[in-house]
Design a protein around this nucleic acid. Structure first.
Length: 817
RNA sequence: GCCGGAGUGGCGGAAUUGGCAGACGCGCACGACUCAAAAUCGUGUUCCCUCGGGAAUGUGGGUUCAAUUCCCACCUUCGGCACCA
């Protein structure tokens, strides 16, 4: 292809030119417009680390492409961007470089705004929100007060997870992995007894595992459901000889007859009372030992069972047997009631404990097809599925009814009731850090804990603090800030010096974008009514059990307070994967495999980078970066440039070629439209590449025809969401009115896309033998006849009659020999 | 241990409902252009082959006229949960 007459494609020049023009023309500002359907496209906001990395581009530019696609389809699209600006790295920078967290954060934001502009995304920057702005965190504090007033925020003393490196407590969700490490810094956490603020997420446990009317990936729903961990069972009460009843949670009330002892967590409140004087010393020693252990030691499942007899006894409510009460650290105070009934015959843990301490084992479930086993012969617990045995009046109850029958019986005798337990804990939101939203509460000697009145918000974070790496929050060491007056009695009071988990900021930022400058409430109700809920939310899967649970909780809590409407904040969720280094490892500075988008924009242009990120993998999968791969995408855009601008030959178009071109164009349009709807970005680009190949083949003949012009116009429109700059430039160069991004998405010409001739695949016994071209409207009979007439079929059949001939309309004929 | 995802050429990946496996791109080979190289353009590119074909989507079975797709068992790998009663 000669291109002497074609100007050079200079991405840097045209990209900055259009970015400036779009901004000057307010092209991407989103305002309420009742005449158009709205589409709220949201992508998870970044932390202002100071550098927009390739992962940000991977997450955001395809989301932008889809938002642009929606816009071209007639939607009034809101696609905002902001910064999750509170958090620990700012404080670390302060300590390390002696720079104020605020200075550091806002300088980073400024840099990232500039980097963002090179992406050519359709952000409406007027709606930008920064969570560390006073005008924003004022409302984060306001939400805290609403939760407090509605009993959803409370303070309690409990053993909590503490990260010794970050010097703060963490929520249960922020402790990860086998070694129970801090989600941010990887340091193993320790337990501390502290009084902290919690949000009552557990109140919404049941609702959080229902996903009605939302289109969220199965994967996320499974992760959340597992995290919340619902168990259905019963609460059963055992009377004790000291008078206080012991309540246990069990998922197997049908094994109650086999409960031969009980085990309490060492921290259980009834331990002292149950312990007999003879056992006192041993019990106390055990409690001391187990509290000294870390969670990791204590919760290691391969650990040999330890425990101590309290000397106390309880009565099995169904068998009337007198059973001993033990304490052991394999029972956790944090789940259920902190006490269990032990059924050693059918629970492996209880079995191991019984064997270790010579406690009785009683089989009460007889599995099908297994001969009766005596407890003495058992080496492991036996499966608890089968017919009930040794269970008084319920003996003989089949396995599929045992749960129900046993529960009914327990309820009848007044020993228990059905109950549901969740693994989910309340959200611990206190952080012993400076750079976060201050909690708007005070402590008064006289009146206790008091919320500050709403008209005193925001409680401003003081800036004149001293940086000492003491592990204490600078707020605690501030000479004056913590001293205030009690809103109730007017006497001297002290402020809460802990700040809020930054996940609070991100629990409502989708509302913050609606009206960042509104000051009569957290958001302008008019904007809320028009834009909410979020139609499409995109971001990383790693937030499944953190942000995505918190924000759903927040929304439901606000709904119950009458602040928001509907049951879910985000209707559709899609997750992108992760871009890895060329070595297939996670990108990190220490590995030296980091790909810097700024350099790529410099050498290839934003359009190429955007297109490559969409092309190289399935978006939800991610994968390793390839420096050679991006060259292919760069080549594609240069080829589009040349094909669109190179003068046409004086070819003589034939009807047949016009038909071929228009068919390919409209088939591609159909496929690309579909792929955009389904977030299948890689096949959007490959489909466009394929169409381009066809256009290159046909250009010598069709270059000057109306069909060619249509092809180029539709091509640019289809490409516009993916590569917004080059398509705008070419659109203008072929003499079309500004802007391509306000054009409507083209309609598929179904007649043009239709095949009038099809290639039928001819198979013998499922193996490809021939292809025949036939009219698309061929009858079944004709199709079979044509296939059978094929020379290779005749040869293979050797004159014999086929046993069966199967015709799949428009696709193939399979001849069974 | 439990739950979920993935496994397709040298590489990234494609394949609406079970219906032509390998689209598109990278890489590679050859050719054109060039003094030459780069760029660009063209042709080829799953493997084996006796050039008729044969084999192939992690492995082994099954269902079916037909399986990357559905079913069963297993292997590898990634993620989550885990003494949760």
């Amino acid at each position: 292809m000669a291109h002497t007459n074609v100007p050079l494609y200079n991405p840097n020049e045209i990209e900055s030119k259009w970015q400036q023009k779009w901004e000057a023309d307010h092209l991407y500002e989103s305002n309420i417009d009742e005449s158009r359907p709205k589409h709220y496209a949201l992508t998870m906001l970044p932390y202002p680390s100071g550098d927009l990395h390739i992962g940000h581009w991977y997450a955001i530019s395809p989301s932008d492409a889809r938002a642009r696609f929606k816009r071209m389809n007639g939607y009034n699209v809101l696609f905002p961007m902001g910064f999750d600006a509170f958090g620990l790295p700012a404080e670390n920078a302060a300590i390390k470089h002696n720079i104020h967290p605020k200075t550091w954060t806002y300088a980073n934001i400024e840099k990232m705004r500039k980097q963002f502009r090179t992406m050519g995304a359709m952000f409406d920057w007027r709606r930008e929100m920064v969570s560390a702005d006073e005008k924003y965190y004022r409302w984060t504090q306001w939400f805290f007060l609403q939760l407090y007033k509605n009993g959803l925020a409370y303070r309690k003393l409990s053993p909590v997870d503490w990260c010794p490196h970050c010097n703060t407590t963490l929520a249960r969700e922020q402790v990860w992995g086998d070694d129970r490490h801090c989600e941010r810094c990887g340091t193993p956490v320790i337990k501390k007894d502290l009084t902290q603020w919690f949000f009552r997420t557990t109140k919404y446990a049941e609702e959080l595992i229902t996903y009605d009317n939302i289109d969220w990936p199965e994967r996320v729903r499974v992760l959340q459901t597992n995290w919340i961990g619902k168990s259905e069972g019963a609460l059963v009460t055992f009377e004790t000889e000291v008078g206080d009843p012991l309540e246990v949670f069990t998922t197997r009330p049908d094994t109650l007859w086999g409960a031969t002892f009980m085990v309490l967590a060492p921290e259980h409140p009834l331990v002292q009372k149950l312990t007999t004087p003879e056992q006192q010393a041993e019990v106390e020693q055990y409690i001391l030992d187990s509290t000294r252990q870390t969670d990791i030691q204590r919760e290691a499942s391969d650990k040999v069972k330890t425990g101590v007899f309290t000397g106390g006894y309880a009565i099995n409510p169904v068998s009337g047997e007198r059973i001993p009460v033990w304490i052991a650290d394999y029972v956790l105070m944090t789940y259920g009631t902190g006490a269990i009934m032990a059924v050693p015959a059918h629970d492996q843990r209880d079995f191991e404990f019984a064997r270790a301490f010579n406690l009785p084992v009683k089989v009460v479930i007889q599995p099908m097809g297994v001969s009766l086993i005596t407890p003495e012969d058992m080496t492991d617990a036996i499966p608890a599925s089968g017919t009930m045995v040794n269970s008084g009046g319920l003996t003989g109850t089949p396995g599929d009814q045992s749960f129900k029958k046993a529960l009914e019986y327990v309820e009848k005798i007044g020993a228990g009731k059905s109950a549901i337990n969740y693994r989910l804990r309340d959200w611990l939101i206190s952080r012993q850090r400076y750079w976060g939203t201050p909690i708007p509460m005070v402590f008064c000697q006289k009146c206790g804990v008091q919320p500050l009145p709403e008209d005193q918000l925001p409680i401003t974070l003081p800036e004149d603090v001293e940086w000492k790496p003491t592990g204490e929050s600078p707020l605690k060491l501030h000479p004056t800030w913590r001293i205030t007056t009690c809103p109730k009695c007017g006497g001297e009071a002290e402020r809460e010096t802990d700040t809020m988990d930054t996940f609070l900021c991100s629990s409502w930022y989708h509302l913050g974008y609606l009206s960042p400058d509104y000051d009569k409430g957290p958001f302008d109700p008019k904007e809320y009514d028009y834009w909410m809920p979020v139609d499409t939310y995109t971001g990383g899967i790693e937030h499944a059990n953190m942000h995505l649970i918190y924000t759903r909780f927040f929304h439901k809590a606000l709904r119950d307070m009458g602040i928001t409407e509907g049951h879910e904040p985000m209707l559709q969720l899609r997750n992108q994967g992760m871009v890895l280094g060329e070595d297939s490892e996670k990108m990190s500075k220490s590995r030296g495999n980091v790909v810097a988008p700024d350099n790529l924009v410099q050498s290839y242009g934003a359009d190429t980078l955007r297109a490559y990120l969409m092309f190289f993998s399935r978006w939800d999968m991610g994968g390793p970066w390839s420096s050679g791969g991006i060259d292919g995408t760069a080549r594609w855009l240069r080829r589009v440039w040349t094909v669109a601008l190179e003068p046409a030959n004086n070819g003589v178009p034939t009807e047949a070629s016009i038909k071929v071109l228009r068919r390919k164009v409209h088939q591609t349009l159909k496929a690309v439209t579909n792929d955009f709807e389904r977030f299948e970005f890689n096949t959007i680009v490959s489909g466009l590449m394929e169409l381009l190949n066809e256009m290159v083949r046909l250009k010598p003949e069709l270059g000057g025809s109306p069909a060619w012009k249509e092809a180029v116009e539709l091509y640019l429109k289809m490409m516009a969401p993916v590569a917004p700059h080059i398509s705008e430039e070419l659109w203008s160069r072929i003499g079309k009115p500004y802007s391509i991004h306000t054009q409507l998405w083209p309609r598929v010409d179904e007649a043009a896309a239709a095949q009038d001739e099809i290639t039928l695949v001819v198979q013998i016994n499922g193996k490809l033998r021939d292809r025949v071209t036939v009219p698309a409207d061929i009858t079944d009979e004709e199709a079979k006849k044509t296939a059978l007439a094929s020379a290779s079929v005749q040869k293979m059949l050797e004159g014999k009659e086929p046993r069966q001939v199967i015709y799949v309309k428009g696709r193939l004929v399979n001849i069974v020999r």
